[in-house]
Amino acid sequence: MVQKEVNCLFTKNTLPFQINALPSTFSQFRKKVENIAIDINLNHLDSLPPMPSEIDVSSLKMATLPLNQTKKTLLFKGGEQAALKHCQTYFETTYPSRYKETRNALDGFDNSTKFSPWLALGCISPTMIYAMLKQYEKINGANESTYWIYFELLWREYFYWYARRYQNALFHFGGIRNNPPLTSFYAQRFQQWKHGQTPFPIVNACMHQLNQTGYMSNRGRQLVASCLVHELNLDWRYGAAYFETQLIDYDVASNWGNWQYLAGVGADPRGSRRFNLDKQTQVYDPDLKFISQWHGECKNSQIDFQDYVDWPITSVTNKGDT
């Protein structure tokens, strides 16, 4: 029996194009695939393959997390059973019917699906989630929000095939078109960004959230990426690499594909995405609750304390200086 691929919705045979002819934008991809029937008949496994003979199971020990990583285990419990329980619980609520209205919230566990950690680790397949979504729509009715859950699964799917198509170019500074952006690397700026000590409170709050929980909302990821590329003029790959070390739902294709998209070297036909951070704060945190909760205010913060050769910069000129 031919085993179905379980980490994607489609296969090379069901895609209406060859991988090397992957559409250059997500919109083009979506229009070609969103109406393709997805086989939700999952193969039943009667047995698992034997353990490789080279591995001595008796010598294996349970891995332990460093003390500074323990908080990142509180939001999510690993494994297939936990994944199934979470997804079933989610679809037993009315949250899917208002997902599009809440998905951009910066915080709140129930405002988005939170499927990504289990998808990233292969604890559940996108096909299983799609089957649960279809069952939910059958019982509760379909609307724009339930479609948007599928829409987000298609974004993940696009980046999966994007990585298969472009391979090493996923990590190139110039992206898939070999067109390097006008950014550089400033060590101090990068440290400020990592530790949430920039002049931008909403970015600081998002980075504190990431560092403490291993998770950040989709909206937050866009804002901190825009800040790194446009406000701090840093090489986008450092941001992508830092996300790789921190995200509990790290997925190589989605992470690096999205960073390319924000940096203007990937699948976005309009070039890089720059967000007005003040406006975004007014829209998504008008009462500054999120910023307050995650201590986003950083007094006396400025972008540079040293110049490009690490000489100190001060904003006050000493008397007698010329």
Rank of each mutant, 00 (worst) to 15 (best):
M62E: 12
M62F: 13
M62D: 12
A63R: 12
T64A: 13
T64P: 05
T64D: 08
L65Y: 07
L65V: 07
L65I: 00
L67A: 15
N68R: 08
Q69Y: 06
T70F: 03
K71Q: 08
K71F: 10
K71T: 15
K72W: 11
T73Y: 08
T73P: 06
L75E: 07
L75Q: 13
L75M: 13
G78T: 13
G79D: 09
G79Y: 04
E80Q: 08
Q81I: 09
A82D: 00
A82R: 05
A83K: 04
L84E: 01
L84T: 02
L84A: 07
K85N: 10
K85H: 10
H86G: 02
C87M: 10
Q88W: 05
Q88Y: 03
T89M: 03
Y90P: 01
Y90E: 02
F91V: 02
F91M: 04
T93H: 01
T93F: 01
T94V: 13
T94M: 04
T94S: 08
Y95A: 09
P96R: 00
S97K: 00
R98H: 10
R98T: 09
R98M: 09
Y99L: 09
E101P: 12
E101I: 12
T102E: 01
T102N: 04
R103A: 11
R103T: 12
R103M: 08
L106R: 03
L106M: 15
D107F: 15
F109P: 07
